[in-house]
Design a protein around this nucleic acid. Structure first.
Lengths: 140, 140, 140, 140
DNA sequence: GTGGTCTAGACCACA
DNA sequence: GTGGTCTAGACCACA
């Protein structure tokens, strides 16, 4: 978990971290009541400013996914998974709508959009990493 | 053209303007060699600072979509349309890949993604405006 | 004369006109006391705003190259040729210095600069038109 | 680096900054991955508005010479040097062609051009500063 | 601390 | 009339 952070991505680092954690909770990789790695450990491992990681955890706590036990660490909320799934779905809906509306605005044929979706669905890649070659092939 | 600017969107105004122009070129609504409205006129019509409009036009010129004739105005480059289509396609591919990879990471079933795509494809909405009710219904 | 105006050049149209006239005087193609074409005729022939042509002629008059006889036209000053040669030389010196100093700043070897100069000296091309193919070959 | 900005020059300040940075990259004074001074620091040191500096950096980023890491700073792109050399060469070729073609148009003898080039090559002066006395001597 | 966005407005070059 | 340059300064996102 959290090995996929890409500081060159246009997606802010703190958003990438928040997303990684939420995706992990939604996917059941982070279990209810499981302890997260400490800010310090992550900061060193990922070579990311501790303030950035702390901000992500603070945000996730405010959103109700995590809770802090002072002196012990940060833990996954027991009811986080369902909430996570709903929120991830909401985000996906909003962004798919935006991209597809843009494609319409540029009068890209719907069939092309469908083909691109099909190729993307067939992969299992890091959203913030370099584009896989199957995707790069589509951009020509 | 260019009536859709939404100053409340998190997408910066200058990016919205650039996108609107590119979509219009790609869709053939702005013809090669056609003159764009003047910076001042747009600034008044859209109630946006002329510097912001000028920045968008400058960017689009650097990208090769527009060219300036001093004292006359700003025009659509003769070869802009093909370039625009390619670039718009590239952007759509990149972003669709990102969203769908996120959905995978959150282990959202592929069938759900397909359903959302289907609904979005059935609409013709402003990418930066308020979410249409059909889309809002999907977020619950 | 004055057929070489290129409205797409980054050199302003009025400067191109002024230069063309000065070069023609320096080269002896425009003789002392010779009458220039009227603003109106040039404006129509070159498809250039009459204000622009009038500005060029006004400037050239202020610089002492031309004089106006009201109702008759604009004429080349009798002593213009020597002055023109001096001024052209001055401009060439100033600009050659600037470009060569830039080449030094970018640490381009002096030998390369000399080679480029040699190729340019071998041609007889329009300064404001498209680059001739011998020059384009040098830019790779 | 960047001490040579001349606000009285007719070359716009942001262009001078862009050129200084490009020359420094081409000459190897700015190394790949090196961090540039911050916008604020330069703004204070050079007494130039931060917006102007930021514009230069933004342009250089769009041209592929620099990249930004949010919250960290602006850095030299790893592949910038070769690109820079090519682009600087291209600019020198284009401008040398223009000046020399002007000299031809004014029927200045080629030998004179060669002499001026020779003197310029013997100096190491700031392209945008005052003309050195050796050059001024040539303009009489 | 870093850079990015946007507004307001002066002033200029150009056609 | 057209766009370009530059300053000043507010406010924001990010690390």
């Amino acid at each position: 978990m959290l090995e996929k952070i890409n500081i060159r991505s246009s997606v802010p680092v703190y958003v990438q971290i928040e997303n990684e954690v939420r995706f992990a909770i939604a996917a059941g990789k982070l279990k209810p009541e499981e302890k997260l790695p400490s800010v310090r450990e992550l900061s060193e491992r990922l070579e990311i400013n501790p303030n950035t990681i702390a901000k992500s955890f603070r945000d996730l706590e405010m959103m109700g996914y995590l809770y802090t036990l002072r002196g012990r660490g940060i833990f996954v909320d027991a009811k986080a998974r369902d909430k996570c799934k709903r929120d991830c779905r909401r985000a996906v809906v909003k962004r798919l709508h935006e991209v597809i509306a843009e494609a319409r605005a540029a009068s890209m044929p719907r069939t092309e959009v469908n083909e691109i979706v099909k190729v993307c669905q067939g992969l299992d890649s890091n959203p913030y990493g370099e584009l896989p070659k199957e995707i790069q092939a589509l951009t020509r």
